[in-house]
Computed example of a mutant assay.
Amino acid sequence: MKQFYGKKVVVTGAAGGIGRLMALAFAGRGCDVIVTDLNQEGAEKVAAEIRAVGRQAWAYRLDISRVEDIQVFRSRIRKEIGRIDALVNNAGVVYGGVFEMVPIEKHLMTYAVNAAGLVAMTHAFFADLLESPESHILNIASASGFVGLPFGATYASSKWAVIGFSESIRLELQERGFDHVGVTTVCPGYIATGMFDGVRTPKLLPFLEPDKIVAKIMDGVEKNHPYVKEPFMVKSVDLLKGALPQKLWDKAAQALGITSSMMHWKGHGR
């Protein structure tokens, strides 16, 4: 998406973390931003920050795990604000721990937000994006979408789903001739936002600074890159995994600390 000025952007999970930073980054490039989050008060604060830099902003409470809430939200936006030009699917949850000791409700909530909610948001606003002269879908996945993640099985697998959905919808748009709709999938390692407190980062995969990854994301959107993978090791992990025999890859992942990284997770879920 080369032109940002005056475009309307929906950002989910935007009350804090990289969601907030992305909302501010889009505003900094001249966009008007629809800030959504379960935390209404936090969303209002981010919207106020955006207005302070001279752009329009609106704050809405939204639970993307509820499809009916998404449908109502889309109708409100269309009526109160109009067509959007970009959708940032950032909202996500993470729960770590020994699989059977994590309540099943948390496992299922992980899928409801990270995968089903993302698909439902994209489906709800797809007509807007097709109508816009130039639009973009930005999906926040994870480096764990390329590898197995013990002690974070449903988190990793939900992000596998995001990568598969993003790749499929990007190619479908191309096949249908909708070249004006860009799709970028973000696959970062662990980000220092508090969600991953207690994690022992794998070798060669240090914690990412939120402002730096957001700068990479915005560059990816502007240049319509299909993927943003950070740090450097993530760029080759899927190739390395595919090239090595399974047993050798398993040993490599163990040696790098990938398989034990979530063992001591104590961050917050949402």
Rank of each mutant, 00 (worst) to 15 (best):
K2D: 11
K7N: 08
A14K: 00
G16T: 06
I18G: 02
G19L: 04
M22T: 07
M22L: 10
F26C: 05
G30M: 01
I34M: 00
T36S: 03
T36I: 05
L38D: 00
N39S: 05
A48G: 14
E49C: 08
V53N: 06
L62S: 08
D63Q: 14
D63T: 15
Q71E: 07
R74V: 15
S75K: 14
S75Q: 13
I77T: 10
R78I: 05
K79V: 14
R83W: 10
I84Y: 10
V88L: 00
A91G: 03
V94W: 11
E105V: 14
H107N: 07
L108D: 06
M109Y: 08
T110S: 15
A112N: 06
V113G: 06
V113P: 08
L118I: 14
V119W: 05
A120L: 06
H123Y: 13
F125C: 06
F126L: 13
S132A: 15
S135C: 04
H136N: 10
I137A: 00
S142F: 03
S142I: 01
L149N: 11
P150H: 14
F151S: 04
G152Q: 12
G152N: 14
T154V: 15
T154P: 13
S157V: 15
F165S: 10
I169F: 15
R170E: 13
E172Y: 11
L173G: 11
E175L: 12
G177A: 11
G182W: 09
T184P: 15
G189H: 00
I191Y: 06
G194V: 07
M195Q: 05
D197Q: 12
G198L: 10
R200G: 01
L208E: 07
P210H: 04
A215R: 10
A215H: 07
G220A: 11
V221R: 01
V221P: 11
N224W: 01
K229I: 09
M233L: 14
M233E: 09
S236F: 15
L244Q: 07
P245Q: 15
Q246C: 10
K247T: 15
K251H: 11
K251S: 11
A252R: 09
Q254S: 13
A255N: 09
L256K: 01
G257V: 10
G257R: 09
T259I: 12
T259A: 12
H264F: 05
